[in-house]
């Protein structure tokens, strides 16, 4: 029949061609998939590269260094040391502390509003709402996430600020509370979506077991479902936190942008991202101010990287927990 074993075992040319083609396609797809990894690495490398002169350039070193960015400075002999962000001045001052304080103040307000609201709304949607309502609620709240942040910033600036000032009588119209509440509008959908996913991932058997033991629906929701989904809810909060630290346009428009180190929430504040956005347009390329703004970028990248990693670890725990019982 066919030839000798030696000869017959050789692949035909068409088969060989096909295999080469398949291997090439696979190689291209695998190569393209590396883009995601490359993007993250390149973002860090190229943002850090522009911040590097702070540590390497004597020119930039004259204006600032790590100590002057993080420790209180006595800018005039005999005066008490303090923190100051004042990049455009005879003696430029690049203290990160007012920006950190501003960011934390705004974020605190945002989280104070969005964690209870987001988690409660998720609980309601997954545990209490009738099916019909749930199917409307979820996409509606997801729609909130689709509003561009510049529109939320506009809303905070034009409408919310006025309403809040009339209600609480703030001295500065734009302040940490206005920015924080506006920020909550972008954080709520994040917390809601991730928590809701975690809650719905709890197997029905948990709920049935609890209900069968005579527990009511709310007891089941709070004592069985919520604890089971707790790491997922925590992940939601962490992601929301990361989102609110990094949000730019809303705070740029609604926070007043004064870099003050005070603890009053009624004062104007300036956050890390807003500082980059507001000042990058006026800096000298390669100068100290330019490098410091990129340094802020590195900080933001690292903060959110840590928060994301944390959130991913929590999510993994939920997945494992649910998989163990399914």
């Amino acid at each position: 029949m066919a030839g000798t074993g030696e000869e017959a075992a050789r692949p035909s040319p068409s088969m060989r061609r096909r295999q080469v083609r398949e291997a090439a396609i696979q190689a291209v797809i695998t190569l393209v998939a590396l883009t995601g990894i490359a993007a993250v690495v390149l973002i860090f490398v190229f943002v850090a590269r522009e911040a590097l002169p702070i540590f390497t350039s004597p020119e930039v070193g004259k204006e600032t260094d790590l100590a002057r960015m993080f420790l209180p400075q006595a800018w005039r002999a005999g005066r008490p040391a303090f923190f100051s962000w004042q990049p455009v001045s005879d003696v430029p001052k690049y203290s990160m502390v007012p920006l950190f304080v501003g960011t934390l103040k705004v974020t605190a307000v945002a989280m104070l509003v969005s964690v209870p609201v987001g988690v409660a709304a998720a609980l309601f949607t997954s545990e209490f709402a009738p099916r019909r309502l749930r199917e409307v609620l979820k996409p509606t709240i997801e729609l909130l996430a689709g509003i561009p942040s510049v529109v939320l910033g506009f809303f905070a600036l034009i409408v919310l600020a006025t309403v809040l000032q009339d209600t609480f009588g703030f001295t500065s119209r734009l302040n940490a509370v206005v920015a924080g509440i506006a920020l909550a509008l972008t954080v709520v959908p994040v917390i809601f979506t991730v928590s809701e996913d975690a809650l719905t991932a709890v197997p029905r058997s948990y709920r049935e077991a609890s209900l069968a033991l005579g527990a009511t629906r709310w007891e089941t929701a709070f004592k069985v479902v919520l604890p089971a989904a707790a790491p997922g809810v925590l992940a939601a909060v962490v992601l929301g936190f990361g989102r609110s630290i990094g949000e730019t346009m809303i705070v740029l428009m609604a926070s007043g942008n004064a870099a003050m180190t005070t603890f009053s929430f009624g004062d104007s504040v300036r956050t890390l991202p807003a500082t980059i956005a507001a000042e990058m347009g006026e800096v000298v390329f390669g100068g100290a101010h330019y490098a410091v703004l990129f340094f802020i970028g590195v900080e933001l990248f690292l903060f959110t990287f840590v928060l994301n990693t944390l959130a991913a670890a929590f999510v993994k725990r939920v997945v494992r927990r649910m998989a163990g019982t399914a």
Partner: peptide, 15 residues
């Protein structure tokens, strides 16, 4: 298959 191993070089999974 027909007396020859299906893992031999003359065939692949597709063939």
């Amino acid at each position: 298959l027909d007396g020859r191993s299906i893992y031999a070089g003359h065939l692949d999974a597709v063939e």
